[in-house]
Design a binder for these strands. Sequence first.
DNA 1: CTCATATTGTAGCCAAGACTACATTTTGAC
DNA 2: GTCAAAATGTAGTCTTGGCTACAATATGAG
Lengths: 141, 141
Amino acid sequence: MGKLPAEGTQARRFGKTRSAQSTALHEDYVELIADLLEGEGEARPTDIARRLGVSHATAIKAIARLKRAGLATARPYRGVFLTQKGQALAERVRLRHRLVVDVLRALGVSSEAAEADAEGIEHYVSEHTLKAFAQFLKSRQ
Amino acid sequence: MGKLPAEGTQARRFGKTRSAQSTALHEDYVELIADLLEGEGEARPTDIARRLGVSHATAIKAIARLKRAGLATARPYRGVFLTQKGQALAERVRLRHRLVVDVLRALGVSSEAAEADAEGIEHYVSEHTLKAFAQFLKSRQ
DNA sequence: CTCATATTGTAGCCAAGACTACATTTTGAC
DNA sequence: GTCAAAATGTAGTCTTGGCTACAATATGAG
């Protein structure tokens, strides 16, 4: 999105939420690409598009943005791969996702709802909160 | 954003997350406008902009979208008000926000981090999960 | 090896959400 | 009551993320 404004003291909270949203999509794509690479051996734009519920054109444009962000590489008609940076992100995202799901389940949320909600929630969980989640889970089993 | 595609079985999870994002902004604005109306007696575009960390022009355009969505009313130079629908949304959002913050704190997250993270998380917590949160809190004190 | 089909890529459009720059209206100090 | 300053509104531009429609490339059946 656009550049951030002066960003006064009061605004930081919201400003952070805002800028996190472009990151969220990158995270979803990277996570999915990692899954596909592991599970299928390759990540094709069409598969990515189907799994994300978008048109293949949209997926291809998003992949272009991933490349610009240094997270992925792709050569025409050859599938998508993750850079080191992309792989590191995928790993972080995956751990975080699992942690969020586990916490939700520990709180009594059904597995299906936990998976569904985690998909949105996970992008907004800070490191601090993540640590608290981990400790909470450890303390309770 | 654009129209949704055919939306195959696999895609539902992500599709929901996507469309939720335009809602999230509406919710932030409505929540803040309700706060301002209560606390200050009026909600001025400039205050809204400052509190959200955006330019006043951005706030005004967002307010126009709220009007289009039937959530707010505003006459030039006269401040912003919420429709019944907008007030109902504000109330729901406020309850949900409190619940999310309380749960995070119960899990050991600091107040500041809980407030900050809730701001992003709350928009993705389903009814089902909300109920689980409420029960969890009730069961533990 | 050819050609239909599937996949991939490109182009062009749109709305949202952001910005800056400029115009208009209110408000308050005098 | 005037007029400068603050608030508000408008216009124009940008990127993102989405779509459809069309073009180009691979792939596999025959």
